[in-house]
Amino acid sequence: MKNIGILGASGSVGMQGLDVIREHKDQYRLVSFSVGNNIQVAKDIIEEFQPEIVSVGSESLKDQLSAIVTEPIEIVYGDEGLIKIAGYHKNDMLLNSILGSIGLKPTIHAIEQGIDIALANKETLVVAGEIVMKKAKEHGVNILPVDSEHSAIFQCLNGENHKNIEKLIITASGGSFRNKTRSELEHVTLEDALNHPNWSMGKKITIDSATMMNKGLEVIEAKWLFDLPIEKIETVLHQESIIHSMVEFNDTSVIAQLGTPDMRMPIQYAFTYPDRLPRQAERLNLGQIGQLNFKPMDYERFKCLKFAYDAIKIGGTMPVVMNAVNEIAVSMFLNGEISFLDIETLIEREMKAHEVIMNPDLDTILAVDKQYKEMKYEV
């Protein structure tokens, strides 16, 4: 029996993580979890899974949950609550599916407690990849990727010699607007942007997919997860989202991982690694699909992806700024304050203006992140 903690249990990935635990109750037990503001979901999770500790967004939410829960459970809240969930002493593994750089400090705390990480929180490695991976190595902790692309690469590399890698090829669906020109993007709506053709995801990730920033974050994450120079990480458009990523080796062999677009598979693989468990799920039928399509990436069309490559090549605090401004810009778009293309405008402007701090420590990273998230942005 493996004890699981989940940060962000009420989000898309968190809920799918609960599905995995639900299907394999003889293998996994939920002992700790966090939600933001969704008290009803928290109550439902507590009643079904009987965990020992839960964190909510604020003290008032803690009081609300305490009033409606009859099961014995410790309730904590806020940033300190996330830290307590992440480092809970009974956690064997932490699924970090929380959104944004707020997931960084809990991840580091869990690593320091020797808890393995199933990582869906891209921003942790985007803003502090070098620090996080070094700390994981020091504490003998496994960082197991949950994003379908990184899980695919991880599986393709099983049993392979790292020095034989020629390049990683990360696939991208292209998101909601993959067939639109830049001029057609000027008048797209929020409803259009949230209509992803392949995946069921939360709002923030769906918008990031539409701008292709999601793929940019994944490129940076892959650099740190697999310890490769950015020049060895490529992206290609693959609309069907069947091949989740590929690895090319120095002998020209290319190994790919295929599957249906379902996050439960990589979540379960992170939980079970190095073993596998059966799943009751739709099977991939290539005969029925008929064909798979690929196109080279157009970095002028998908500017946010280019921003990500530029940010990690520059290094230092540039990825922190890119990520922070993106988080705020996406929030502004979701709130109807800016247009879709304004997201790119804000990110590009702030990246150009930023004076990079090289080799930042954790305190510097957190300070820069806070600074850019508290700024007032106008287009």
Rank of each mutant, 00 (worst) to 15 (best):
L7Y: 12
G8Y: 04
G8S: 06
A9H: 02
A9E: 04
S10T: 14
G11A: 07
D19I: 04
R22E: 13
R22V: 04
R29G: 10
S32E: 01
G36W: 03
I53T: 05
I53R: 03
V54R: 09
S55Y: 01
A67D: 15
P72S: 12
E74Y: 11
G81W: 01
L82S: 10
G87K: 08
G100D: 05
K105S: 12
G129R: 10
K134S: 14
A136P: 07
H139M: 07
H139P: 03
I143K: 00
L157P: 02
L157C: 02
I165A: 07
K167D: 07
L168M: 02
I170T: 00
G175A: 03
E184G: 08
E184R: 09
H187E: 14
H187Q: 14
W199D: 04
K204F: 10
I205S: 06
I207G: 02
D208Y: 06
K223A: 13
W224G: 09
W224C: 02
E248D: 02
D251N: 15
S253Y: 10
I267W: 05
D275A: 11
P278F: 05
R279P: 00
G290T: 03
E300G: 06
K303Q: 15
Y309F: 10
P319L: 12
V325W: 04
E327Y: 05
A329C: 08
F333W: 00
G336H: 04
E350S: 04
V356M: 10
E374P: 01
E378A: 12
V379A: 11
V379M: 06
